[in-house]
Structures are given as C-alpha cells and as structure tokens.
Amino acid sequence: MIHVEGLTKYYDDFCAVDHIDLDIKGGEIVGLLGPNGAGKTTTLRMLTGYFQPSMGDIRVKEFSIHQDSLAIKRLIGYLPESAPLYKGMIVYDYLNHVASIRGLENGAKQRRLAELADMCGLREIMHKTIETLSKGLKQRVGLAHAMMSDPEILVLDEPTSGLDPNQIVEIREIIRRIGEHKTVILSTHILSEAEATCDRIIIINRGKIVADGSTQDLTAQQGREKQIQIGLLSASAEAVTAQIGAVPGIMRVEPMASQEDNLLRVNVICDAQTDARADLYAAIKATDWILVEMSRETQTLETIFRELTREN
C-alpha cells in the first residue's frame, strides 16, 4: 500500500528524517513512536504531501509523491496534531466545505455528514463555532475532517495529546473501529496507547527507524531479562535474598520499598530463557514465609523504548 524509500528531510543543515525505508500493508494500524523531535511529525507531513522530501520517494499504491501528490492526497485523510481547524467557522459549515473539496456531491455529502456525525459523536455540536469547542470535541471534528472521503489511509498525528482520560478512550475506540477496514498510521509518544491500538510499532529516534514490529516481536527481540515480583509476609530481606538468589536462572534479587509494615516486596530478575516461577515457589515453600503476591513482568515496551532512544 505505502512504500517509502530513502526518505530524508533536511531543515537547513539539520537532518530531521534520515533515509527511512518503510513498507506498510493495507489494513495495518501502525504506530509511529519516538521521543519529541525524533522526526515523527516530519515523516507524516511528507507522507501527506505537506512537506516535500529533501531526498527519497514515497509511493502510495502506484502514485509517487513527486509526480502525483494530488492523487495521494485524495487517498489520504490527515489529522495534524491538535486539529488546527478554521476557528471562526461553524462545525457543519466546515465539514460541508471539506466535503465539497473532497468532491462529494450533494446527496452523498449529506449522507456522509450524517454518518460522521454519528461516528464521531458530533450531533449536538454541529451548529457550534469551532473556537468554542473543547479540545476533545475539536479533535473529533478533526477526525471527521480526516475521514470525510472515507479514505483508504488515515494519518493521525498525536490524536490523543492533550485530551482527558475519557476522551482518550473515546478517540482510541474510534480509531480502532476505523482500523478494522482501513490503514491507519498514527504517531504518539504515549507507549500504552501504541500498545493498545496498534498492530505494528515503529520506533523512530533522531530521524532513523530503530525498531519495527508488533509489540510481541519487539519485546521478544529486545528482552534479555524477565522480572518477577513477589510479596512475602514475615520474611527478612537478607534471608530472602540469600534463599531466592540460589535458585537457578535468577540473576538478581532487589528488595523494594513497601507501604505495608509486615510485607516484603522483592523484584526478582531472571534471564529470559528460563521460566523460574516453579523453582521460585518451591524455594519459598521450603521456608515459613507466607507468599501473598507473585506476578511476572516481561520487558515492557517502555523499557525497550527507553533503551532504544536513550541519549548517549
């Protein structure tokens, strides 16, 4: 569906995006992750035809961004960060205007507007001026703008930034619903969001792709160690460290601060290949400690992200 080759963007001397190669299949929900200033927005802006690439090519279906940017713009619906809509316009007028530019004829236009009003929950605000809307509502109008022509590809730049938790859930819900049929590319720096909504995650740092795959792929590739957290009653830190540290496959034992008096929490770090849970339990069973908690944590996206995008 989308084929990106050697995509590069310079701002004067600064290289914001550095030779990115990328293939995105139809129907994928792709999350573009990276710290601030990593080149996410620049990449999306080139993809949507707002910026000209300094080098490289983007092909969407058979169209190239250099020759047929208009054809690509027809295929893509785009929501820039924080939905910069025309402030003075009424929501209905605005969407109507976009629908006309998107080439919808009268009957189809009214039908589409009604559909989008339902899908994005705009019924009550259709007659309001855009500048009076809250951020979440504005974002929904922006989504309606992006989806107007029922595009095959939807590009969303930080669709949930600045929203409250309820609004975030709503917007994610909408994105997931769209993603059932469409290709969605979204950028975010909220990791849980990428995990929750995306099939595939691409981590960008300093204009380069540093990781690409599903959440499971990434954790499997990058994970060298696993963590098991246990909570014990009537145990001392020294004894626990000695007893558990002897279990095969355990690399380290780190006592953690606990709010409850009697309870001792420890973080057990073991290597990724062995599953030490059974041995661990056996080791605890042999003592008179009371096991109240035990949970396994594989390496999270967050730790991977931090590892890959660390400033050095």
Binding site: T48, G49, Y50, K73, P80, S82, P84, L85, Y86, G103
Partner: peptide, 14 residues
C-alpha cells in the same frame, strides 16, 4: 498562524 494551512495543503487542492 492557526496551522490550518497544513489541513488546507493536505486536501486535494493545488
């Protein structure tokens, strides 16, 4: 200033 320029340019208009 508002940023709507970005929306305008990513619509299919020359």
């Amino acid at each position: 200033n508002v940023g709507s320029y970005e929306l305008l340019l990513t619509l299919p208009v020359t």
